[in-house]
Design a protein around this nucleic acid. Structure first.
Lengths: 216, 216
DNA sequence: CCTATGTGAACGAGCGCTCAATCATACTTT
DNA sequence: AAAGTATGATTGAGCGCTCGTTCACATAGG
């Protein structure tokens, strides 16, 4: 009767725990577990973080942990997903009031770079950790990554042709979108080195000129 | 009597194996082991690659493997070091005949991007794997990474003021150096996506304009 | 008393690494 | 040339241990 749980290949898409009935409880606890896990993953990395550490940090026993999360891999997926949602939300908020204009693009970039600065550890974590996901979920995470780039791309497209903006080729728009994402992440990766020479704002300003140069 | 071998903290700096006498043999075999390992790490990742797999791939028994390499971590360090040396050499070769000129910088960038394309798997590996090194060696690897950026920086400094080049501020030179490295690596990370829109040459051409824009 | 939830000892697969034993080859001795 | 010896190189069974996961049982609430 319990045999049908045996195979490791879980049925449904991402997140399938066990037998607790109250769904609100599950959501809340799971959220709590994810938060604790993120911190642990950031400080110790995925492999050196044991499930026992996670349980302890979240204030559960290992047994309970497995009531809310079906495997360590599963948890990793949830972590990745959550981080991306966070980054994406932060970026979208920062873009909420944009209308096509040089100064606006500059502000968008500066805000995005600020997000990258605030979430630098999370960004590094994502880079380190995606590899440990099953291939199937890796794709999904990669897609989320590209979603963020897409936000810039659509923003640029909206600006294209309006106000002081020239009409932009698709190719260029795409590349600029990628460049913005990547140069933001570059700050996360190399900030210890870059900070010796620039503040975040200076960095943002120069890179903005850089990016605008490609457009105009 | 054999007790003095006990502590895991190895004495010397990086690479210390065991009791085989012929040093040429050691060098050659170790090189061979590293090569086999790189392939395995790229396809399976660090943790899923077992020492037994490495031994098998290199054509040794595990016992023999440990005659040439003192630990799996050690091997990881050697792998990182070797890759960086390779990248660095490739970049330096590509830069061998540079004199200050727009066209030359363009060629330098295109060549570097080609290196990134050829060694894309290696570059990804480096990003994934550095975290598993002991802190002490992590720094060293990070330094190697920055060395490559420095190559660009010094190249740019040599160009500064000569021929058609303006005299460049230090800050700008540094940032441009970083941008070149990072935009090359961006190709490695996102090439599956970018290839839909650009060939490597097109990518290099546009990004070069981009970079030149910051200089002129 | 029954259902929902929480617990942590126990399990066992898998790992890096060691080391006593064996083999191969070169050098000595007669 | 044959037998003896010394030494470097190779082997793989197995040790010690970690860690993800499970499950028989405890506790709480209604």
């Amino acid at each position: 009767m319990t045999k049908d749980r045996k195979n490791k290949q879980r049925v449904a898409d991402p997140e399938v725990p066990t037998q607790i009935k109250n769904p609100d409880l599950v959501r809340e606890r799971r959220r709590h577990i994810i938060d604790s896990t993120v911190t642990l993953f950031i400080t110790h990395g995925y492999h050196k973080t044991t499930t026992r550490m996670i349980a302890k940090a979240a204030g559960f026993s290992i047994g309970s942990l497995y009531e809310y999360v079906s495997s360590k891999e599963d948890l990793l997926y949830l972590v990745c997903k959550t981080i991306h949602e966070e980054v994406q939300k932060a970026v979208e908020d920062a873009l909420a009031d944009s209308t096509g204009d040089k100064a606006v693009l500059a502000r968008v970039i500066r805000r995005y770079f600020t997000v990258c600065d605030n979430m630098a550890d999370h960004i590094l974590l994502m880079y380190q950790v995606t590899q440990f996901l099953p291939k199937k979920w890796q794709k999904r995470v990669l897609t989320n990554e590209l979603n963020i780039t897409d936000i810039f791309i659509t923003t640029l497209n909206q600006m294209s042709g309006k106000s002081s903006f020239p009409v932009l080729e698709d190719n260029i728009v795409n590349l600029v979108g990628h460049n913005i994402s990547v140069l933001g992440q570059m700050w996360a990766f190399r900030r210890w080195h870059l900070q010796k020479q620039f503040t975040l704002d200076q960095y943002a300003a120069i890179q903005t000129d850089f990016i605008l140069g490609l457009i105009f």
